[in-house]
Amino acid sequence: MRLAESILAGNRRALARLLTWIENEDPRGFAELDALFPHTGKAFLIGVTGAPGTGKSSLVNSIALHYRQHHQRKVAIVAVDPSSPFTGGAVLGDRVRMRDLSGDPGVFIRSMASRGSLGGLAQATARVVQAFDAAGYEVILIETVGAGQAEVDIAKLAHTTLVVEAPGLGDDVQAIKAGILEIADILVVNKADRPGVENTERALRGMLELAHPVRRVFRHHGKSMVVDAPMTSDIETWIPPIQRTVATQGTGVPELVEAIEKHAQHLRENGDWDKRNRVRLQAELEDLLRETLIRQLRQRVPPETFERILDDLVARRLSPRAAAEAILSSTRATT
């Protein structure tokens, strides 16, 4: 039987094998993904990102547990950790915090190393998510270390993105430092049992108010006037709520899941759910087209020609734009 058929029939071993093929960019995986694609588009994708040690894995564990116990939805988890840039190896330790989920056939956890390229990671993650979606996992949690562009790209995959912060990790709010606050649909202040929660929450609230001003102060004829921000209905603007949690005890998690579900409903009501899906698939299509076109083009340009034009580019005899044009016209001449 084809892998895809086994996966649709609920075979977890087949699913695990496809995930390996996806990670390795093994060509055998592509046909299986094609066969699975009609069965995708049903899952709710939740991104969880933040600095190391903020409690993301613990939080993913308790969110998954809540979805299992109170919503009876099948949950898949993709936990991404960085590869060592020097050896290419990785220690993936997120499962340590997810032991509550073991033994539940309605949960599937997969650890992923970020490996080489950032674009490659986002692409592989998208495909892993598609495999889970087709296999009938209704909620998919994607944990990434909040460090920059890769997370932003992965967050684009998700319907709802949580940015996790915790007190006691230094003076700065980590998410602000990493520039990932903008991608938050919900802000989580985890480790609310630790001293310093108020400070962390205040700092986040301050940043949020800059991004989503509720009232503005104007100077007008030497007097300051307070003007309410243009009224927008709740349907239109989503202001990221801040939720406190103690992930290790499950405190605040029911409220957090409630906020997550509210965001999902908001996306559905204002049309953003469909819009996000469309944008995401368009990006995937364009990535593939770009890859394919470049590969085809390279096959048609003799390596000597390519190298000669590259030499001209390096010697500044051609600008990058002119070099690209030269390569394109060399193929036109030969056809």
Binding site: T87, G88, G93, R99, A113
Partner: peptide, 15 residues
């Protein structure tokens, strides 16, 4: 686990 990582392997550590 660390030695295998340093040898370029991907190690899943479960605790």
């Amino acid at each position: 686990a660390r030695a295998l990582r340093d040898a370029g392997m991907e190690v899943i550590y479960t605790g």
